[in-house]
Design a protein around this nucleic acid. Structure first.
Length: 348
DNA sequence: TAGGCCATCTGGTCCT
DNA sequence: AGGACCAGATGGCCTA
């Protein structure tokens, strides 16, 4: 039984020499695919080491072999004739495919590099617990939107509204991750609980909730994405909470492993310095729940081996040094931007 | 074990 | 013709 191979039916050996930094997955993939090259259809080609230049010449010679067999019994097919796969054509096709695969891999690596860069500038960054691609994009979109609102309104939003904006449309694990990165008890910004806010908090919250246009994430797939239903977002537990809205720093400062808190994220989380919330004067803090950004502090803390998220606190949530993205990791441009943001938050 | 996430291959389309 | 881009398919890894 003979079989003529068209390009459409070809199984090709993939590129096997790559230098990307991917893990064993890639190599095992290569090994697996290399094995595929021993498919029967390639048997007659396996020992053909002809170079591409040689193939060009050979192809011309074999071109005439592609003439129809003169088989009139079969109905003629419309459209362009599918040429038989000669050795030369097969090899050329394989080479083309391998090059295209390499390009595609490189393209995707570039895309992943860009995504990794994005991960580092959104509020929550951890080397050990990376945000997924989709969650990174969603968080980045929320972050941009939230910062835009800060710039637009010129007012400093309250923390919870800001975090709510950050977490809109994110999956529950990511929401917890963001909350953990910000050392915030996720419970404190549940939508329904905000109704029980003390008056002064409601006022602060209004700076974000009373925005001229509502923030939505249309077109998101069904859960776990695309809903702010608190029951899925934070694993709301039925046990009684001391207060519907305890100051978020209470939990953060007292104990990271407080039972009422969802617990430290494991593996340890880190903050890249984009946000950390300073508790300097609790009375002042409770006044408006304003938060500050202090890149320098976080960066210095990181440089000293720990990210002390709450300077001056007796009980801190220390993050291993190796997980911290140092302040130096930010470009000059980023520092300028951060300084501007600092000014916004401090001046307003 | 199912589902989520990911890397890779592949063929199609568009553009230069 | 060849490269960039895209989306579908596939299979591996990991976690709940």
């Amino acid at each position: 039984m003979t079989k003529s191979y068209t390009e459409e039916s070809m199984m090709l050996e993939p590129q096997t020499s790559t230098d990307w930094t991917d893990k064993s997955h890639s190599s095992s993939q290569d090994e697996r695919d290399v094995e595929n090259t021993s498919l029967p259809m390639h048997k007659d080609m396996e020992d053909d080491e002809v170079g591409l230049n040689r193939l060009e010449d050979e192809d011309d010679e074999e071109e005439e072999d592609e003439e129809e067999d003169g088989d009139d019994t079969k109905p003629k097919r419309r459209g362009p004739k599918k040429k038989k796969m000669t050795k030369a054509r097969l090899q050329r096709f394989k080479m083309r495919r391998m090059k295209a695969n390499t390009r595609e891999r490189n393209r995707m690596h570039g895309l992943n590099d860009a995504l990794e860069s994005l991960r580092k500038v959104v509020p929550c960054y951890s080397k050990t617990q990376k945000l997924s691609k989709i969650e990174t994009l969603r968080l980045a979109k929320n972050y941009i939107w939230a910062l835009s609102e800060v710039l637009r309104s010129g007012k400093s939003p309250d923390l919870m509204s800001f975090v709510q904006a950050l977490c809109k449309g994110l999956s529950q694990p990511t929401t917890n991750l963001v909350a953990g990165c910000l050392q915030l008890n996720p419970r404190t910004f549940l939508p329904e609980q905000s109704q029980e806010m003390p008056p002064h908090m409601q006022t602060a919250s209004a700076s974000f909730s009373a925005l001229p246009y509502s923030y939505q994430t249309p077109g998101l797939p069904s859960p776990p994405y695309g809903t702010m239903d608190s029951s899925h977002i934070f694993h709301v537990k039925p046990h009684a909470y001391g207060s519907a809205l305890e100051p978020f720093f209470d939990t953060a400062l007292t104990d990271c492993t407080s039972p009422s808190f969802d617990g430290p994220l494991s593996p340890p989380l880190s903050v890249n310095g984009n946000f950390s919330f300073k508790h300097e004067h609790s009375s002042e803090f409770e006044k408006n729940y304003a938060f500050t950004m202090h890149y320098q502090a976080a960066g210095l803390a990181g440089a000293q081996g720990h990210a002390s998220l709450y300077a001056g606190s007796t009980q801190r949530c220390d993050v291993p040094m190796e997980n911290i993205m140092s302040y130096e990791g930010h470009s000059h441009h980023e520092r300028i931007m951060n300084a501007q943001l600092n000014a916004i938050f401090h001046d307003s």
